[in-house]
Every structure is written in C-alpha cells, then in structure tokens.
C-alpha cells in the first residue's frame, strides 16, 4: 500500500471516530442541572475537535501528503515475519496465561519476541525468560499477595 492510501485512511479513521462520538452524544442525558452544561457538553466539544482535525488531516493527505513529514522508513524493507513472531508472543501469552500459568506464558512471550528479533537460541532464551519472571512472580505472590495463575505447583 502506498503512503497516500495510508494517510487518507488515517484521516478517514479520525473522521469516522468523530462520527461515532457524535452519534453517541444523542444517547446522553440533556439534564444540565445548575451548572447549565450537561453530560453532552464536553463530548460535543471533543467531537467537533476530532472532526476539525480529521478534516484538516484529510485535506493535507489529499493535497500532497502530511506536512513536515519525512518518511524515514520509505527505503526500509518491513520485516513482516518478525512482527508476526512478536505479535504471536503477546497473543499467546494472553491466550495461555490461564492454562499454563504466569511464569511459562511470560517465558513464551520472551522466546517469541527474541525469535522475532532474530535470536535462534531457543533454550537460552527460554531460560532467560523464566529467570526474569521468577523474581517478579515472587514479588507479586509474597509481597503484594496477588495470586497469579500457575501451572501445577507454587513455583510454576
């Protein structure tokens, strides 16, 4: 996708957001009490603000692109495989934390992220990940008395 399509899409996203917030206003009460302004007042202001900046942004993106913008990534090849690894790490942690416990799921995140950045030493990364999380786990459990999900015994 070219930069221009991106820029137009971003501007349209902001305008769409303004639309969503504007439509949401109608569901809010109009009772203004003694203050003279109701729960709608600030949302309306912010909606207008969003709409104005969104419109200006759209105008810029259609007339030669964002101003004061130097595209420093134009000649860099995006590493999509790396992003997939890192994303998978976070999503796996979210998915697995209730099943394999806090320590292991955080270690999975560590391994996946390191892999995304090109590290191949799987076992070493796993060991570092566990070593990094254990003290935090201890801190939560012992000092903060927050019980975190575990796999089978109190250490995993």
């Amino acid at each position: 996708m070219t930069t221009k399509i991106w820029q137009v899409s971003i501007s349209c996203f902001i305008l769409a957001l303004a639309l969503v917030f504007g439509l949401g206003v109608s569901g809010l009460p109009t009772d203004a009490g003694y203050a003279g302004i109701s729960s709608r007042f600030v949302p309306i202001l912010i909606t207008v603000f969003l709409a104005v900046v969104g419109a200006l942004l759209l105008w810029q993106s259609l007339t030669g692109g964002f101003r004061h913008f130097f595209d420093d990534t134009a000649n860099v090849r995006a590493d999509l495989r790396g992003v997939i690894w890192v994303s998978a790490g976070i999503l796996l942690m979210a998915l697995l934390i209730s099943y394999i416990g806090f320590v292991l799921s955080a270690a999975v995140l560590f391994v996946c992220t390191a892999r995304g950045f090109g590290s191949r030493a799987l076992l070493r990364d796993l060991a570092i990940g566990v070593a990094l999380v254990l003290p935090v786990y201890w801190l939560f459990g012992q000092v903060l008395a927050v019980s975190l999900p575990k796999l089978f015994n109190q250490w995993l």
């Binding site: 955080a106 995140l109 992220t113 390191a114 950045f117 590290s119 990364d125 990094l132």
Partner: peptide, 10 residues
C-alpha cells in the same frame, strides 16, 4: 536487541 526487547515486552 532481541533479548532487550523481549525483556521490555515481558
């Protein structure tokens, strides 16, 4: 970089 960012994310 790999371990640094992995640590940050963890």
């Amino acid at each position: 970089k790999a371990q640094l960012y992995a640590g940050i994310l963890v």
